[in-house]
């Protein structure tokens, strides 16, 4: 296989199918110029979404003021880590989700009064992929995911929502919906397949 040609066609396809990421420029300005106005744009758009996600996913143990505190923590990380954002690899949406997710995991651990100090980012770290072609396929896949999500049947949306937005494991979703674990797993797999996320098992 000729890599150059392959790369070229991937670039063409990428340009055809990828909507520019409107937020990437704001993140860049925050990284390079510590630009307050750009950060405020991100703040305005994302903080109500981060807050909504945390209120759903932090569990019944979390109150509004804790969700607020974690929302602030997420935004501080967005400011501090802006230079590590790689627009070739992920959208700003996904990047901010992963920061919110990790901050939430950390909060839950702290609440458990774990005596072992662990940096959650050591485990849920941003896996670097040094392969640009893979990055491009990734970004293309994101468009497919976006479009396919709108067409999913309700029962699949429900399990995805519980898994990703409420932060419930397969087992917890099965228990809550009184479904066999296998049913939860197959609903999620069906949904993922429609979004072209083809996991072997």
């Amino acid at each position: 296989m000729d890599n150059d040609i392959d790369m070229e066609s991937a670039v063409t396809q990428l340009n055809r199918s990828t909507v520019p990421d409107a937020w990437a420029e704001s993140v860049r300005l925050v990284a390079v110029k510590r630009d307050r106005a750009a950060f405020q744009v991100l703040y305005k758009h994302f903080s109500p979404l981060i807050r909504a996600f945390l209120l759903k996913s932090m569990g019944s143990g979390a109150n509004r003021s804790e969700a607020e505190e974690i929302t602030q923590e997420v935004l501080i990380k967005v400011w501090n880590k802006a230079a590590t954002f790689n627009p070739a690899k992920a959208s700003v949406n996904t990047w901010i989700f992963t920061i919110a997710r990790n901050t939430r995991i950390d909060f839950i651990r702290r609440n458990d009064r774990n005596n072992r100090e662990i940096d959650i980012e050591d485990i849920w770290h941003d896996a670097e992929s040094p392969e640009p072609l893979v990055d491009m396929q990734q970004r293309r896949a994101e468009q497919v995911i976006k479009q396919a999500m709108a067409t999913l049947p309700e029962e699949q949306v429900q399990v995805l929502y519980k898994a990703f937005m409420e932060g419930k494991s397969h087992n917890e979703v099965a228990e809550e919906l009184s479904l066999p674990l296998g049913t939860v797993k197959s609903r999620i797999r069906l949904a993922l397949n429609k979004m072209q996320i083809l996991i072997d098992r």
């Binding site: 949406n93 996904t94 993922l192």
Partner: peptide, 9 residues
């Protein structure tokens, strides 16, 4: 990464 895209969406 794709699953994180799903969550972000």
């Amino acid at each position: 990464q794709q699953l994180s895209d799903v969550a972000a969406q």
